[in-house]
Amino acid sequence: MPERFQVVQSTPEMAARLAEIQRACFPDLAEDELMREEHYLSHQNVFPEGQHAVLDLETGLVAGSSSDLRMDIDFDHFQHRYMDAVDSNYLTNHNPAGEWLYGADIAVHPDYRGYGLSTLLYNARHDLIRRLGLKGHVAGAMPKGYHQHRDLLIEEYVQKVMAGELRDPVLSVQLKRGYQVHGIIPDYLEDPSCGNYGVFIVWKNPERMA
């Protein structure tokens, strides 16, 4: 990884920049589902350990970030809406005793793509999980390439991505990082690029038995 980048815990002074990065990364996401400055301030208040930012040490700019909260997961009833899981983006439903880390958001500013910054953020998340002794990480992945294959059912599309027959800009990357697909969530959020679908993915902490 380039030495010019460093993962740190995000701070209130970064909140406005984090909101800029969110808007730049998710141009198709519904306006009321975008994270704003007030949301990032709430994240830092309710669960500061779970909020990461990547700093460009040459410029002092924040280049990317991730937001997480702790919760318990019922894998037999995993269907949910994104805004319910993150309490309307405020993360105030964070459970300090939750056994799983839930990925609310990860974003790298378009100007900084190609530097491997998402890998830095995922490593920070997994390090946090190990440090806290959690069972693992879950998230609703956005299959952002699905809009180019709407002739397929979402189930067919995800199967082809899993088999390596198609590449999805989000899901394919997460699968390479050791995540597994647990199921598909209709009406997860409002974003035409993924047909409003989410793909529920799971990374299990290898240091802890499930």
Rank of each mutant, 00 (worst) to 15 (best):
M1N: 05
P2H: 09
R4T: 08
Q9Y: 14
Q9E: 15
Q9G: 15
S10K: 11
T11I: 05
P12E: 03
R17N: 10
L18C: 12
A19D: 06
A24K: 01
A24Y: 01
C25S: 13
C25V: 07
P27E: 06
D28M: 07
A30P: 03
E31H: 04
E31F: 02
L34P: 03
E37Q: 11
E37S: 11
E38P: 07
Y40N: 15
S42I: 05
S42C: 05
H43E: 03
Q44F: 05
V46F: 14
V46Q: 13
V46Y: 13
V46M: 11
E49C: 08
Q51N: 11
V54K: 04
L55E: 13
L57W: 14
E58H: 07
T59V: 09
L61S: 07
V62Y: 05
A63I: 03
S65R: 12
S65H: 15
S66Y: 04
S66K: 08
D68I: 15
D68K: 13
L69N: 13
R70I: 01
R70F: 01
R70P: 03
R70Y: 01
D72V: 10
F75V: 07
F75D: 06
F78E: 03
Q79P: 04
Q79T: 11
R81N: 12
D84V: 13
V86E: 06
V86A: 08
D87K: 14
N89K: 05
N89V: 02
N89Q: 11
Y90C: 12
Y90T: 15
N93D: 14
A97E: 15
G98S: 01
G98F: 00
E99C: 09
W100D: 07
G103S: 07
A104P: 09
A104K: 06
D111K: 03
G116M: 00
L117T: 01
Y122K: 04
Y122G: 02
N123L: 02
A124K: 13
H126Y: 09
H126L: 09
I129C: 09
L132V: 10
G136L: 01
H137I: 10
H137M: 09
V138D: 10
V138G: 12
A141Q: 06
M142E: 04
M142T: 05
P143L: 03
H147Y: 07
H149F: 08
D151M: 06
L153F: 14
E155Q: 15
V158K: 11
M162P: 01
A163K: 04
A163I: 02
G164A: 02
E165V: 08
E165T: 12
E165G: 08
L166D: 03
L171E: 00
L171C: 00
Q174F: 00
K176L: 00
Q180I: 02
H182R: 12
G183I: 01
I184Y: 08
I185N: 11
E190D: 00
D191S: 11
C194T: 07
F200D: 02
W203V: 05
R208P: 09
R208C: 12
M209P: 04
A210K: 14
